[in-house]
Design a protein around this nucleic acid. Structure first.
Length: 798
DNA sequence: CCCGTCCGGTTTTTT
DNA sequence: ACCGGACGGG
């Protein structure tokens, strides 16, 4: 998974620095980055350039040479996986304990900060964290309560709006309310905030925003951390949002008269060419802002790639050079050209998948590839189905990434809701989730009654139960009593025992035992017990301390971090020395912040299937990228705006650079999508790859020939189109116009003329007869859908 | 309360 | 085509 050591050591001039074993095997760029003097720096780290290694070695080097103390290091990553990786590698490099360091995800560190300063942040110490699902259900509940028109304001959209506002750093009071719609949404945002505050819960956005405000508004706390963290390191900086960047600045120093007076050194590591998360708030512009606002003097590019052969790298470089907005970077390798990038054009998506499976079989059988080292990447999840079924039919083991993660499964969320109620009975979201699960005769009527009562009294549902009379009241009271009894029973038990007792008392396991599909769920619940057993205490994140042995009474709380000896004398709690959380509360935070594995677990050597997004940061010997078609990749929703198109191109860049030895690109003429057959033109990205690095292997003889597979399934399109496209270079459209596939002889790639829009290029054609429609891109008017029976189109050029 | 049926959405995703 | 959520009858 990690690039091999560079073949030669550092250049002579720097050789003395490399004397330390820590620095051995670094190339000169890496060495320069690791040994940067104090000050802010931007490291542009290309794909496969040893970025993580540089980051961790930098920290180790700072510590080893006494330039930093563990307590003075703050390292932020984006995912738990990356944080864990950093901790693991760091502890392999240094005997030192990593306990004093703050290494974790943005949200994990926010959690740590807010727990330590919950009072100043205005939160209960045991605040619960809402994940996206929880947030949505909280919004739905709110909408119901205030009778919000869910046609006009769908809860989903409201949740999105609220998250967006927080991401921008906006509280309801400062949201610009242009129209009545915006005002109404903001009003709901306000109510949502009040609800969360009342219930003692925070969503992901709130974790970030609240801790940003905590630092911004509390000089003592801010100064404390600014003095403490002399070294701040940020991974995947290109993925940071506006708020995350603002958050970092609070740690770095105060802004006086518009100028940032940073105390510590901030090192941002990132790759603008791999910025693929703009759609969820990432702002590549943070990189240039960082250089300007921090007055960055040191910029280092890591361009030496240790991963791929040069045909692959050349392809990546050529492709990305078509982007206009770049900081500029060119990957190089000392490995030879290697195999050409193979391009395959299939008739149908099914055939494309079948070809992939065949090819994978070859790689495994004849080229000694491990299945695990082969990945099939696609732009969208919908594409996985055909590939899966082809693999399945061939009996080839595979593993699909994505889907529900462990802590997101319904039965697990139910169990967690009970555990949360033990910590905080006023968490209405959790209360409602399990109030009648397993069923205990509390129907919608009773719930409404209770909600009304609680609303009138201005209290939580839990506290409102006493005021509900009658049969409904009795059932409700029984539920509350059950939870209360459970709370009493679990006093002093270990985390594992608490979970077991909960599963027992609430009847969850019992309930699933009687369900026909309950076996899996029971297994998952058992897995939750195991997770509790092996839960490693983590304040902040990425701190994998010791697994809890059968621990001393829970009431003792966590063994607090022994403050690092070199800790600056601090009177305030700072996440290391502050009040500690109960193991249960810590476990619940862990569950919310780290949803766990989402990959079907198999010990087996299996082919890996995933979206291109999910492949970021991974590498494989062989990589297949399917569906290289206009509309799919680049995706049709992105093809028209330049920024969006450039992000698609970066996405393709990420996909290409995953491959070490073999890269395959493929496309299909015909694809079944949303139940309709689509005819897609080849992806424009083919035009942007260097012809010399490619090899077109479509197993159809050039020019004439019997299609080897086109007629296999009797697809109507292949019957009418016996020759398919000719196998040829991608940059020019097919030389010979074949007979119409779908309608009026129109095919993707053709140039057409429209009386009003002028000349344009056909992107796709779908449907037949009177329903036939075509998507045409007109240079001056953008992309239009035209119904063939209505629009007058003339074919200009094939 | 459970189960069937209809309807809508369907790029990418972490925390 | 297909999945998940919402709704209504048994």
């Amino acid at each position: 998974m990690f690039p091999q050591d560079p073949p030669s050591g550092a250049p002579q001039a720097l050789a003395h620095l490399a004397a330390s074993p820590l620095l051995a095997h670094l190339n000169s760029e890496q060495l320069a980055a690791v040994t940067l003097p104090a000050g802010h720096a931007l490291i542009l780290a290309g794909a496969g350039s040893g970025k993580t290694r540089v980051l961790t070695t930098r920290i180790a080097w700072l510590l080893q040479n006494g330039y930093a103390t563990p307590g003075g290091v703050l390292a932020v990553t984006f995912t738990n996986k990356a944080a864990k990786e950093m901790v693991t590698r760091l502890s392999a490099m240094l005997p030192l304990n990593v306990r004093g360091m703050w290494i974790g995800t943005f949200h994990g560190l926010c959690n740590r900060l807010l727990r330590a300063h919950h009072r100043a942040a205005g939160l209960p110490q045991a605040f619960q964290i809402l994940d996206t699902q929880d947030q949505l259900s909280a919004v739905k509940r709110l909408c119901k309560q205030y009778a919000v028109d869910d046609e006009r304001f769908p809860p989903k959209q409201l949740a999105y709006f609220i998250s967006g506002c927080k991401e921008e750093g906006l509280r309801p009071g400062s949201v610009p309310a242009h129209d009545s719609d915006a005002r109404k949404k903001t009003e709901i945002y306000q109510l949502y905030e009040e609800q969360c505050q009342r219930e003692g819960v925070v969503d992901f956005g709130e974790l970030m925003l609240r801790s940003h405000e905590l630092l911004r508004d509390n000089a003592a706390i801010r100064t404390h951390y600014q003095q403490r963290f002399a070294h701040i390191l940020v991974d995947e900086f290109q993925d940071t949002s506006k708020l995350q960047y603002a958050w970092l600045k609070q740690f770095a120093g105060d802004t006086v008269d518009g100028r940032l007076q940073a105390r510590g050194s901030v090192i941002a590591v990132g790759d603008d060419d791999q910025s693929i998360y703009a759609f969820r708030g990432a702002r590549v512009g943070n990189m240039t802002d960082f250089v300007r606002e921090f007055d960055v003097r040191q910029q280092i590019k890591l361009e030496q790639n240790y991963r791929s052969h040069s045909n692959i790298l050349d392809s990546a470089n050529a492709l990305i050079s078509h982007n206009s907005q770049r900081l500029g970077k060119n990957l190089r390798t000392v490995q030879g050209p290697g195999e050409p990038v193979r391009v395959y054009e299939a008739e149908t998506d099914t055939q494309e998948a079948r070809w992939m499976v065949e090819e994978i079989g070859q790689l495994v059988q004849h080229n000694g590839f491990e299945r695990m080292e082969i990945a099939v990447l696609y732009r969208s999840n919908a594409q996985s189905r055909v590939i899966e079924s082809a693999l399945f039919n061939a009996g080839m083991p595979y593993r699909v990434y994505g889907g529900l993660r462990f802590f997101e499964r319904a039965e697990i969320k139910h169990a967690l809701a009970y555990l949360r109620l033990l910590e905080n009975p006023h968490d209405d979201t959790s209360f409602l989730r399990v109030l009648n699960f397993p069923p205990r005769g509390i129907g919608a009527r009773s719930v409404e009654l209770l909600q009304d009562t609680a609303r009138t009294a201005g209290c939580s549902l839990h506290d409102g139960v006493g005021a509900v009379a009658g049969k409904a009241g009795a059932n409700l009271a029984a539920f509350v009593a059950m939870v209360r009894a459970l709370r009493a029973q679990t006093q002093g038990l270990s985390l594992r025992e608490i979970v077991e007792q909960m599963l027992e008392s609430t009847g969850l396991v019992e309930h699933f035992r009687s369900e026909k599909e309950g076996a899996d769920r029971i297994e998952n619940l058992q897995e939750l017990v195991n997770a509790a057993e092996s839960f490693v205490m983590q304040e902040g994140l990425g701190r994998d301390a010791v697994a809890l042995p059968t621990q001393s009474p829970a009431s003792q709380g966590l063994d607090p971090d022994s403050p690092a000896p070199d800790e600056p004398p601090a009177r305030m709690p700072d996440g290391d020395t502050g009040e500690t959380l109960s193991p249960l509360a810590a476990f619940l935070s862990h569950a919310a912040l780290e949803a766990g594995d989402n990959q079907a677990r198999t010990g087996q050597d299996a082919v890996q299937l995933m979206t291109v997004h999910a492949s970021k940061g991974l590498e494989f010997d062989g990589v297949f990228i399917g569906g290289m078609e206009e509309g799919l990749f680049p995706h049709e929703n992105s093809a028209n705006a330049r920024d969006a198109l450039e992000e698609e191109r970066r996405l393709m860049y990420v996909a290409i650079t995953r491959a070490r030895k073999r890269l395959y690109l493929s496309r299909a003429h015909t694809r079944l999508l949303h139940g309709k057959t689509r005819y897609n033109a080849p992806s424009r990205f083919f035009d942007e790859l260097p012809e010399g690095a490619l090899k077109w292997i479509t197993s159809r003889p050039r020019g004439w020939g019997i299609p080897d597979s086109g007629a296999l399934n009797g697809y109507s399109s292949s019957a009418k189109d016996p020759f398919g496209f000719q196998s040829k270079t991608p940059s020019s459209p097919p030389a010979v116009l074949q007979e119409a596939a779908p309608a009026q002889g129109l095919r993707a790639g053709m140039a057409v003329f429209h009386n009003r829009f002028g000349e344009g290029r056909v992107l796709s054609v779908e449907g037949r007869g009177d329903d036939a429609r075509t998507q045409v891109h007109f240079p001056r008017h953008g992309t239009k859908w035209l119904v063939l029976s209505i629009a007058k189109l003339t074919v200009v050029d094939c």
